[in-house]
């Protein structure tokens, strides 16, 4: 069992296994993580963070792999976080995004980590920010976060990044239509992948219309709509240029600072919510009180109100969670 100080030294010495272990601590809510990140925090903030999201099968992994190739060709190192949903039944997950990035395994300038969403509210976004911070502290220059754009938890992950790339493709049916509204709101760059497939033109026009119809404050970013065929490597440079344009926009008028401030707030909120949750329910005895009140015939909202006022009055004394 290693200490936070020990793992920090190993990371500073360039040991990749230390990056991996710290990300595990972040995922598991390990109490040692906070101290370790604190010791590394002056190294955090240099990496450029790009999120890639969209419906299943749109080509997110392929595009991530292409972005990685372009970054490596430009001499920049890449840290990738690939998020997949956990099974709601078993809590387990099959994480297969690496398969499409297999050629990167032997490149020491690339680090790939798979993360299961674990179905938690808010916790995933916090863990994704933490994982990016760890890779950032190690010195990876391009940070790519790939996640399926379904479900709120996976969606929230986009708070972890500076630039959100939403990937769509033609012929995916009505499900995509329903999803599009939410995806459009988070997008900084909209990509129509599989541009060689029938229906791509139509999707491109639809998206351009949707973007131009949205109200936008003066000086706000207007997401460009870019077509590519990532599987053939066609048009990917154009997509990456759109990402670079967004970065140039972020660099002025405090836009990046605003994004990062939002990201830090999400991280703090996640940590506080999880911390409170754990302390109240596990050691504050709220479970027992709730059960007793329910058994006494009170309604759920009466029970909740009673517990909330007990918490605010400070009559619930959560035990200190012991760190190590």
């Amino acid at each position: 069992m290693s200490s936070a100080a020990d793992i920090v030294e190993r990371l500073k010495a360039g040991e990749r296994a230390a990056v991996a272990r710290l990300i595990s601590w972040a995922e598991n809510g390990d109490p040692r993580f906070g101290g370790a990140l604190g010791a590394l925090f002056e190294r955090v903030g240099r990496g450029r963070r790009t999120g890639i999201t969209g419906p299943p099968g749109a080509g997110k992994s392929t595009l991530t792999n292409e972005f990685t190739g372009l970054s490596r060709a430009a001499g920049r190192t890449v840290g990738i976080l690939a998020v997949d949903p956990s099974s709601p039944f078993s809590g387990g997950a099959l994480l297969g995004d690496r398969i499409r990035m297999e050629e990167r395994t032997s490149d020491s300038g690339v680090f790939i980590r798979s993360m299961a969403s674990r179905g938690s509210h808010g916790g995933l976004a916090r863990a994704a920010i933490d994982a990016c911070d760890v890779m950032d502290a190690f010195g990876f220059e391009e940070l790519l976060v790939e996640t399926v754009g379904v479900g709120q938890a996976e969606f929230d992950v986009m708070e972890a990044v500076d630039t959100v790339v939403v990937v769509l493709c033609p012929g995916a049916g009505d499900g995509i239509q329903a999803m599009k509204a939410g995806l459009l709101e988070v997008a900084d760059v909209l990509v129509v992948n599989k541009a060689d497939v029938a229906g791509a033109e139509r999707l491109l026009t639809d998206l351009e219309d949707a973007v131009s119809l949205r109200r936008r404050a003066e000086g706000a970013w207007e997401p460009p709509v870019v077509a590519c065929a990532a599987g053939r490597g066609e048009g990917v440079t154009g997509v990456w240029e759109a990402v670079e344009r967004h970065r140039a926009w972020l660099a002025v008028d405090g836009h990046l600072e605003a994004r990062r401030a939002r990201l830090r707030l999400a991280q703090v909120r996640g940590a506080v919510a999880e911390g409170l949750d754990g302390r109240l329910w596990r050691s504050g005895g709220l479970d027992e009180r709730a059960r007793a009140l329910l058994a006494a015939g009170e309604t759920p909202y009466d029970v909740a109100a009673e517990l909330l006022s007990a918490v605010s009055a400070g009559s619930v004394e959560p035990e200190e969670v012991s760190g190590s």
Partner: peptide, 8 residues
């Protein structure tokens, strides 16, 4: 996976 493990 069905036993709750995360499988890569």
């Amino acid at each position: 996976r069905d036993h709750g493990m995360e499988v890569i």
